[in-house]
Design a protein around this nucleic acid. Structure first.
Lengths: 217, 217
DNA sequence: TAGATTGTTAATCGATTAACAATC
DNA sequence: TAGATTGTTAATCGATTAACAATC
């Protein structure tokens, strides 16, 4: 168990995936699983699974494998599903409202406590009991409430300014939906969701497949 | 110029990022750029930039660097921004509607031609001139129109069945928004957008930062 | 021409996979 | 106990970085 050693992002990004598969196994009523069996389900090597898990501790047992429920809970703890991170959404356009309606996030340890916009037609409206407030009241809100993460769903051109403002107010996690790489001079964790990047990669791969099929025939 | 050689996914996933930075440079009126200068803007090594670009051809000139407009267009072509991929959205809930309103996709070579749902209250409604149709008419629609990509925004439990149906109809690209790894026995390109995975990684990193700050003091 | 910067090969680094002793 | 499977070290593979000759 290589505890306190620096864990690579490659490993970290696989954790939510393990968590999902373990959740599925639980639902199927499977109580124990070997790295070999999980390997064939997930399409990665058993060796990688054992390596990954051992970054965080020895969760298995020789000759037995892993207890599904135990491993599920442990990975949940590592990912902080019981932390109840307080999140706010900035920008209540289509994407902001869509995310506000995602009840899944709650299950994974994220609690929406505020939504902000500048459109007067939206102010006062509620989404799942959370009020849409004017962006002008953000300062006071952040001062009065602990806000762990801000979800940025504002138009492209406003994103840098809003990100800067939020970071200055002391919010330490930003989830950015604009197609740009935010850089801030503060100690803030930024996670980008570049939807158009993903779609463009899909387009590229589609073309490549078609090309290779044409060459075959 | 290592043409026709297999290009790694690591390189491919960086292409849209290059494309974004070149677009920014164009807007700034910068006409030429060296790998060194681009390197400092993007925060990756100049060596990596030259390696990446040379997978697709020699776009630069010794002693000069790269012509921004030329490189922008070339990468655009590689990514297929002029292909006008025909896309449909399945599931016109919050996320489906949010994506339907994304005009950005059009600029990057994706044309929305249909939206499908099963909710009778939504059928007939239009989003940006695109009609929401009943899922029952999907078969005929795909038969009568070329559909390159289907965006899946349906509830978790319906996703596998809908994905299977769409793939059977001959759609070769799937953009999946459900938190599951789709596997299909057909030659279909699947690109997953696992929003909750991304958010959980953000939560993990936030916790790690806080831990390390606590240890310092 | 001299200076700059690419394209490309070689070296390094990190991540994945294989192997196996430890042990349940 | 014997069989199974982990935890962990060692080997391999692939991706990134460094170096430099080619050349604009």
């Amino acid at each position: 168990m290589n505890l306190d050693k620096k864990i690579s992002m490659a490993v970290i990004r696989r954790l939510p995936r393990y968590y999902r598969y373990l959740s599925d196994l639980l639902k199927l009523g499977i109580t124990r699983i070997s790295s070999k069996e999980l390997s064939s389900r997930m399409g990665i090597t058993a060796s990688q699974i054992r390596q990954d898990l051992n970054c965080f501790g020895g969760f298995g047992q020789q000759g037995y494998g892993y207890n599904v429920e135990y491993l599920y809970k442990e990975i949940g703890n590592i990912l902080g599903v019981n932390e109840a991170f307080k999140i706010i959404i900035i920008g209540a356009g289509n994407m902001g409202q869509a995310l506000a309606n995602y009840t899944n996030f709650e299950k994974r340890g994220f609690k929406l406590i505020g939504i902000f916009d500048i459109n007067p037609n939206l102010i006062g409206k509620k989404i799942r009991d959370v009020e849409i407030m004017h962006l002008d009241s953000l300062d006071r809100f952040v001062a009065e409430n602990q806000v762990d993460i801000a979800i940025l769903c504002v138009p492209y051109e406003n994103t840098p300014a809003v990100a800067d403002k939020v970071a200055r107010l002391g919010v330490k996690g930003l989830w950015n939906f604009s197609p740009m790489d935010l850089k801030l001079p503060y100690d803030v964790i930024i996670e980008n969701v570049h939807l158009s990047d993903s779609l463009m990669v899909l387009g590229y791969r589609l073309n490549e497949m078609r090309k290779s099929q044409r060459n075959k025939s």
